[in-house]
Amino acid sequence: MHVDAPQGLSRRLSDLLYTRRGLLLLALLGPVLLWFGVIYLGSLFALLANAFFRLDDFTGQVVREVGFSNFVALLEPANLDSARRTIVMAIAVTLACTVLAFPLAYYMARHARGAQKAALYIAVMLPLWSSYLVRLYAWKLLLAKEGAISWLAQQLHAQWLLDALLATPAIGGPSLSFSTMGTFIVFVYMWLPFMVLPIMAAVERIPASTLEASADLGAHTAQTFRSVILPLAMPGVAAGSIFTFSLTLGDYIIPQVIGDSTLYIGQIVYRQQGVAGNIPFAAAFSLVPIVVIGVYLWLAKRKGAFDAL
């Protein structure tokens, strides 16, 4: 029987890959591992190594000597203040996203069917399909002094409420678009889909019978929520919060466009590496979110957020 060469070769190749599974795995995972290991992690470590160098103030050149001067500089009150403000914002955004996302995600997972579920899914995903900057500037207009929200407050005779909020120290400002409250609102809006989807996936995996069993065994709706739904949805909340928390910690564009002039970690890193050319200090400051996320994950694990995985 005649078998032509290309077919014979591809047949031999497929036989080889079938009998040597390790080879197939290597072919599939090799490129992505190379990407992660060399380009992604490699450049991250190169950046972090920079944190131990320093910038010569006089020449503006990086001095490649290991030292801790950047970490000492981190402890300056202005820098500590920025770090604290960013972390508080990340926590607030994560909490708000959880509270807003949970009912929606629960409804989508347990009650919505067919076309309604698809419509809700698209409604959650739709913002992610358009440009981040477009949405950000849209919010700038919405939150401006003569913007839609201010107009709506006037029409509803609730201007006093808006004024009272804006007069609140620490979160207020001349208008929503120039206040920490505005920054918070836009952060919550931007990251909400990243919280809805993981919670929905987690709630979908809870068997309906466990909820019925809980009610059957005497638990009221609130008790079932606390003792069964919440613990079993916790991996989803934890996954979503890792997104909302780390995205807030690292973002430098939202606080640039909306908010008062106080700086967030991302902005400092951006300015240090760009305008000032102080890569070593920028690198040292980028360590802060990494350490914070590490501590956050460790706490979440200790609290048992991943137990039901």
Binding site: E212, A213, A215, L217
Partner: peptide, 19 residues
């Protein structure tokens, strides 16, 4: 509602709480 009834159920899939 189920929690107000003096009956308990053994479910087909047992419905134990995995956590």
């Amino acid at each position: 509602p189920p929690y107000a009834r003096p009956v308990n159920t053994v479910f087909q899939d047992y419905a134990l709480f995995p956590h």
